[in-house]
Design a protein around this nucleic acid. Structure first.
Lengths: 201, 201
DNA sequence: GTCTATAGTTCGATAGAC
DNA sequence: GTCTATCGAACTATAGAC
């Protein structure tokens, strides 16, 4: 029995990864609502029911995509944690690197930018996901800034975190919409300079 | 003939304003793609064909909504222009007022936030509209900042404008998603303080 | 100016064969 | 694991009566 199963072509490969990649691409271009299951199925050479064999519903597929990409994305912030020398300069250098990487990866930025806005609606399937995600990122930033003991700021560090994230998100919108007119990295560099100037006092 | 037309109930009123208001509300809650003509028609007590009598297609209705709200919205920036004394303080005070007003008007903010993200797609009916709009706003900000002759900054003022808009947009996203966790006005006040400190040098 | 009726499409999802 | 076939719902838009 067991020997029979070897080298049999009938064993078709697991298409989960292919599906997640195709869905990521399409969701990032057209959003969740704007993407049909048929278009995803076509992209991986499956029919709709064939696709639904892997993910029983469209919402489940979205959750799969978010979980899949979340790792890649949060890895980017982990660079901050790794740094032993927690200085203001290193933190902002890491953020600059992040922005720089983002400029080379429009698809992923698009995915989160479009999905975040879609999920402002309380009945959107990823509404809670993004609330949690933003709280997590704000918390991460707050931790980094709090760890700087050579810092003398009376300002609310939590509010600073919101501003930091806001600048990155806002620049991404302008850049995605009109890349010719907006230099995201240059803008973030100037913003960093201003923030460092303020925080070092 | 002409006397006959007076006081005749058959003359039904123009529902254009009602339709624009209802469409604004629904677009701001569910986006363009997420809103059906039927739901707009129902909101104003019309059938779908009745609605399409006023706006021949859904895209035309969207354009109508944008043109309609554009005036209200750009009026907000005009407060900046009106000011005779162009000081850094007055400019940021006006922006603070704007953020403050926005906090009382989630519907309008929602409309533009959701529509902007939808229109990142190059084939979205309001794609060009938002490209132009952002260029216009950046230009407006750049003009204000340039007019300050008591300013000594080497920084690119155009880039500063992008940052200013990015902060407002980014804070709006976090606030719309999770109003409990984000104090938009407080964050913008802190940002203003930082910017003024930098610009006054 | 507003209606009924409906064309024509696209969508998510299910049933059941192989 | 993937298919054919199909259902039911939602959608934009048009034709034509009143």
């Amino acid at each position: 029995m067991s020997s029979k199963n070897e080298n049999i072509k009938r064993v078709r490969r697991d298409r989960t990864k292919d599906i997640l990649n195709a869905a990521t691409k399409l969701f990032s271009e057209k959003g969740f609502r704007g993407t049909s299951l048929a278009s995803i199925a076509e992209a991986v050479g499956l029919t709709e029911p064939g696709l639904l064999h892997y993910f029983p519903s469209k919402v489940r597929l979205l959750q799969g995509v978010l979980a899949f990409r979340d790792q890649q994305d949060t890895d980017k912030y982990s660079e901050l944690t790794d740094s032993d020398k927690n200085s203001l300069q290193t933190i902002f250098n890491s953020l600059k690197n992040l922005v720089n990487k983002n400029e080379d990866n429009p698809a992923l930025i698009r995915l989160f930018t479009i999905l975040v806005s879609e999920s402002i609606r309380t009945d959107h399937p990823s509404h809670e996901y993004f609330i949690d995600r933003y709280q997590m990122i704000r918390g991460t930033f707050t931790n980094y800034l709090s760890s700087l003991d050579d810092l003398d700021i009376s300002a609310d560090i939590d509010t600073l975190s919101s501003i930091l994230i806001a600048v990155m998100d806002g620049l991404q919108i302008q850049w995605l919409l009109d890349p010719e007119s907006v230099n995201m990295l240059e803008a973030f560099n100037l913003f960093s300079k201003i923030m460092i100037g303020y925080l070092e006092n």
